[in-house]
Amino acid sequence: MAPPGLTMTTPVLRVRDLRVEFRSNQAALTAVNGVDLDLDRGEVLGLVGESGSGKSVTGLAMMGLIDPPGHVTGGSVRLAGQELVGQAEHELRSVRGRRLAMIFQDPTTTLNPVLRIDTQMIEALRAHERISVRSARRRVSEALEKVGIPAASERMYSYPHQFSGGMRQRIAIAIALLHNPDVLIADEATTALDVSRQAQVLSEIQSLAEAAGTAMIWITHDLSVVAGLADRIAVMYAGRIVETGRVADILTAPAHPYTAGLIASVPRHDRSSRRLAQIRGSAPSLSHIPPGCAFSDRCDFAAPACRAAPPPTIEGKHGRSVRCLYPLVSDEAHA
């Protein structure tokens, strides 16, 4: 998938120790607490976690779209070697939408209701390219056709509310892919669609991104969505990545008790007779994260040492890593 001249070993996106805090008068809450991520060219990474785990904030932080009271307080986001954290706004703007794009959960609210589709797409083109309105319009029409909007050259003059939710998400995807970005961050992009459409839109996005050579970070709370889509998975809990690895490795042999709990709670056809397992307790709020391992309160295997200090990251083969003192499987067992 990599364009010639670039080796697969250089990640297109490299995130190191990313930190985001939300400050109020009383306290600073850490929403993202030292996140490391690597994304290879053309790769699909599933970023999985419960709501409040910091996965959406991580996505916005990579885009440089954290607004006060939130602040990126440290770390590095490198897009093909170019540092984004701490860059001037106009530098970030030239990256956003061109090399790094993002789509959101609710397609009924991501498009401006009072602007026509063509307006919203042409402006996205002209934000990064010197291009006449006429040829921009042609590009828009092609982009819409590519995502499966029928009669695109006419329907592009419509307003968002004249399209169904699924169509609107396709339009958002068309906008995000206008410039063939290096990376597309999709935040729960199919969650709001009904189940029958989810799979269809999902596979369409996948093939479009593949064709454009775009790597994807697919943010979701739903493991089953990324199972068939992602190359690798990163599991996030209370602002930290607790486990990363190849999809097959993680799904068949989760190392972190939290990942294991997530997998056990996914409904599956082949074991529908069994009662779904639930992780006991609920995700901690940002203001009440336990010291030590954030998951220790809910973990069946927690020992006193887990509550003493945050566990270190244990690295394994094939980019596998886990943040747990007592991982469920030793790396050698399945490597």
Partner: peptide, 25 residues
């Protein structure tokens, strides 16, 4: 609103965000 965030994610300049997306609404 989400659409303002999405408009920013497209890389639009502030003049366009405020002068078109916000103003029209």
């Amino acid at each position: 609103q989400d659409f303002m965030l999405f408009a920013r994610a497209k890389g639009l300049p502030p003049t366009r965000l405020v002068g078109v997306h916000l103003l029209k609404n």
